[in-house]
Write a protein that binds this DNA or RNA. Sequence first.
DNA 1: AAAATCAGCAACCGCAGTGAA
DNA 2: TTTCACTGCGGTTGCTGATTT
Length: 330
Amino acid sequence: MGRAPCCDKANVKRGPWSPEEDSKLKAYIEQHGTGGNWITLPQKVGLKRCGKSCRLRWLNYLRPNIKHGEFTDEEDNIICTLYMSIGSRWSIIAAQLPGRTDNDIKNYWNTRLKKKLLLCNKQRKDHRPRTGSYINHNKLEMMKEHENFFATHQTINNTYSWPSQQILFSTLIAPQNHDLAESSSANSHNFQHSTTDQVYFSQDQLCQISSTNQLASMNLVNGNTCNSSVMISNGYYPSNGVVINNGLQEYNNYNSVGLDHDALNSTHSQQVDKSVLEMVNSSTISTTSQDQSTSWEELSPLVNYPPSVFETVSPYYVFEEQRYMGLLKQ
DNA sequence: AAAATCAGCAACCGCAGTGAA
DNA sequence: TTTCACTGCGGTTGCTGATTT
């Protein structure tokens, strides 16, 4: 026995919305709100539509401040970076692009952006000499960059900002009272960020990300309270490299350094988008009904990560996540 | 000029999560 | 604790206009 239908399919109109239906729905919601119940809304409005259909129409088309039309380069960048980080969680991605809907972004990704990236990468490949796997090559470069980064920034009280066009996404679990934090200099887990062009997730979005990705969240590490923050920023730098370096050391002992490859496999694997995992695991992603396939190798170099972003920011936290999740020995 | 194919996008479907009873 | 109604989400479908053959 299947699930009961949400409405009487035989008596509801389907297909494209007419301008009359649009204006009825819009006028009603603007005057009365949704009343928190989409199922009964069509009746109140006088529409022969399913409640879900009304909700969708309102959210994707009728509500105020919806932005249609071309996506900017900055929006492209955010979409790509977030997709690589959290997969096809379109609603979360949409939350970072005011005026855009998840449906819009999903369509844009599936129909245009993915192709644009592939084309772009193909052109790059055509003009790039290759030495072995690009991923390995990339890893080596990232490791070098990492070493350079800390060589430069650990010894001096520095401020470092990534180039302004680079969008960084990262999830941080910052212990307030952790043994490592205590054993090293103060504020070693604090990350500073530049003051311009920052976009922050709301707490709700953060919780959603935390729960869906099964990241260690609020009160986890050794029973101590943690702060979580998720940030996209055009400028971002650690204020102190010491603990991060320690974390990296442990991380290196446990995992090889890579483009979040291991982190994805070991910590996020249960919830990270299946296609992303497939990309990571087999370098091949099959995309729904369209018989195109997109490899991780093809897409990942196109995302603008700051130099060694995962090495400089994530490893310690990944390490903590793994420990919390029981994936690492205590 | 007509048919076939493609691309973009609005809308639908069904599953999972949530909260109230 | 269980059940059920509802919401939100991601995947998929199918329509329509544009482009190609």
